[in-house]
Amino acid sequence: MLDVRQLEVLAEIARTGSYTAAAASLGFTQPAVSYQMRRLQQAVGTPLFTRVGRGLQLTPTGESLVRHADTIFSVLRAADQDIASLVARGGGLVRMVAFQSSCLTLLPQALTSLVAEHSDVRVTLVQAEPVEARHLIRTGEADLGLLCNWENEDTPEGESAMLRVPLMTDRRCVLMREDHPLAGRAAIGLGELADQRWVMESHRDRFAAACTNLGFQPQISATVDDAHAIQALVAAGLGITLMSEMALRGPLVPSLVHRPLRDWPLRRTYALLWPDMAEVPAVATVLRAIRRAAQSY
Rank of each mutant, 00 (worst) to 15 (best):
A79K: 09
A79H: 11
A79R: 12
Q81I: 08
D82V: 06
I83C: 08
S85A: 15
S85F: 02
G90K: 09
G92D: 05
L93N: 13
R95C: 06
R95L: 06
M96P: 04
M96F: 04
V97M: 09
S101C: 08
S101Q: 10
S101W: 05
S102R: 04
S102N: 13
L104D: 12
T105I: 05
L106Q: 10
L107G: 03
L107T: 00
P108D: 03
P108Q: 04
P108N: 03
Q109G: 06
L111C: 02
T112S: 13
T112L: 09
T112C: 09
T112K: 11
S113K: 06
L114H: 01
V115F: 08
V115M: 09
A116Q: 12
A116F: 04
A116E: 12
A116Y: 04
S119F: 07
S119R: 14
S119T: 12
D120H: 14
D120L: 11
V121R: 04
V121Y: 03
V121D: 02
V123N: 10
V123A: 08
T124I: 05
V126I: 13
Q127V: 13
Q127P: 14
Q127H: 10
A128H: 11
A133G: 15
A133L: 04
L136H: 09
L136C: 05
L136R: 15
I137V: 15
I137H: 02
R138L: 14
T139A: 14
E141R: 13
E141S: 09
E141F: 04
A142R: 15
L144G: 11
L144C: 13
G145E: 00
G145T: 01
L146Y: 01
L146V: 09
C148A: 07
C148N: 07
C148Y: 11
N152G: 02
E153A: 12
D154L: 12
D154M: 07
E157H: 09
S160E: 15
A161V: 03
M162H: 02
M162C: 06
L163R: 08
R164C: 06
R164Y: 01
V165F: 00
P166Q: 05
P166W: 05
L167E: 01
M168L: 15
M168G: 00
T169D: 07
R171F: 03
R171C: 05
R172H: 08
V174L: 11
V174F: 09
L175V: 15
M176E: 05
H180T: 06
H180S: 05
P181T: 10
P181Y: 09
P181W: 10
A183N: 09
R185Y: 01
R185I: 00
A186P: 03
A186V: 08
A187V: 07
A187C: 07
I188R: 02
G189A: 15
L190R: 03
L190F: 04
